[in-house]
Design a protein around this nucleic acid. Sequence first.
DNA 1: TGCCGAGTTTAGACGGGTCTAACCCTAAAG
DNA 2: CTTTAGGGTTAGACCCGTCTAAACTCGGCA
Lengths: 225, 225
Amino acid sequence: MLSDVMEDYLKAIYQLQRETDDRIKTSEIADELDVTSPTVTSMLDKLEDRELVDREKYRGVTLTDEGETVALEIVRHHRLLEAYLTEHLDYDWSEVHAEADRLEHHISEDFEARVADALGEPEVDPHGSPIPSADLEPPTRPEGKSIAEFEEGTVVTVAEVADRDPEVLSYLAEHGVEPGVELEIIEIAPFGMVTARSSEADDPVSLPESVASHVWVAAPAEPEP
Amino acid sequence: MLSDVMEDYLKAIYQLQRETDDRIKTSEIADELDVTSPTVTSMLDKLEDRELVDREKYRGVTLTDEGETVALEIVRHHRLLEAYLTEHLDYDWSEVHAEADRLEHHISEDFEARVADALGEPEVDPHGSPIPSADLEPPTRPEGKSIAEFEEGTVVTVAEVADRDPEVLSYLAEHGVEPGVELEIIEIAPFGMVTARSSEADDPVSLPESVASHVWVAAPAEPEP
DNA sequence: TGCCGAGTTTAGACGGGTCTAACCCTAAAG
DNA sequence: CTTTAGGGTTAGACCCGTCTAAACTCGGCA
C-alpha cells in the first residue's frame, strides 16, 4: 500500500516526464511539490526500494512501468474528478484543480467507476487534458504544439489549456481561450509574448510566453503559409 | 489546522456521547477507532491542549463546544456524502458509509455547499440519521426508542437504522427494514431478539438485540395497549 | 479499612515525512 | 587537467501517530 505522499511524488514525476522526456532531477520534483531537496532524495530512496522509479544517483529518476501505472491511476482520478465537478456540481474549470487534488487519493475504485460511468467515459477533462483509460495503458503522447510555436497569421484550434492557476484560467476563459475555440495568431513578440484573436471574444488577448506555452494545439486548422 | 486523525477522534467522541451521554472513556474510543489505549491517551492530551475536549484524568472526556462544532462539521460532511452517493451515483445505502468515511476529511467548504445544494439541503441521510445544519448548531436530541423497547403487538414507523455494517444493512433492506417502513413488533424473546413484520416484506424478520437496538423509531404509530 | 483487578497513564521506541546544516559529486570553464 | 559553482546527498533532528511494557489509579469487595 502506498501513502498519499508517495502517490504525489509519482504523479509529479509523471507530469514532469511528459514535459521534458528526460530524467527528472531532484530539484524539479522539489519545486513541483514545494518541498526541499533532501526530502525528495529520501523519498526517492523509498520509491526505488519499491521499484517504482529507476534511479541513478546524482542524475535523476524515471518511472518504472509499475510507477507509471500508479501515476496514471492518480491522474485518471484527478481528471475524472475535474470533469465530474464541472459537469455535475457546477464548478468552473478554474476551480476544479484544487478540489481534485484534495480528493484524488481518497476515492475507491468503485467511486472511480461510477463517476466515469456518470460522465460516459470521457476522454478529456475540462482543460482538454487526456484522461487515462481504465486499463491504465500509457497513452501515446499525442503530437501537439503550444500556440507560441506558430507563425503569425496562423489559425489554430485550442486542444488543451495546461495551466493550473485559477486566476490565469479565469482570465483565459474571459478572453475566449478555452479548449475548442479557434485562435488567430496575430503577433509573436521578440520576448515571447503571443497576441491572438479568439473566435469567442471581441478583443485580442496577449499572453506572456509562460502562459502561451501552456495553450496547446493538436494540429493547425489551416496549413501554415 | 486539525489533522484527519484528530477529526476522527472528535467524531468518535461525539458519536459515543450521543449514545451514552456520559463521560467517554479511553477504552471506548480505542474500540471505536481500532487503536490501543495509550494511543488514545496521547491524542486526548493533544485535544485537551487545543481545548477541544474537557478531560479528567482516569475519568474520561467530553467535547467542548469547539470540539463539538468540529465533530458536527465532519458528521455533516459524512452524511451529506452518503446522501449524495445514493442519490446521484447510484450507491446502495449499505455501501455509502465506507466511501463517506474516506472522503469526509477531504472535501472543501465549497464542495460541501454544492453537494447540499444539489440535494436540496436534506435533513437526513439514507440511514435516516439527521444531517447537522450548515450553521453547525448542536441538534437537540430527538426523542426516540429502538424497536427493542416496545411491547409486542405495537406498530411503529422506522425513523433511522443506525448500523454501519454493509452486510447487516443489505440484510435489513432485503427484509424490508428501512427508514419509513412500518414494523409490527411480533415478539420480543427473553434474550432480546426482536421479531417483526415489515409493511414492505412478506415474511417476518428476527433481529438479535445488537441489531434491533440500532433500529430507531421516532414515535409509536399507535399508542401502546 | 485495606486490597485487588480492571482500566488508564507514563515511558520509551519506531516509521513516516519533513527540515537544516554539512558534505560531496558533476560538469562546465579556464 | 584543474578548479569551481551548482545542485544532490548524507547526517541528524523534529513532530505525528502508533505501538508495547511497565507503572499507576479507581472503585468495589472482603
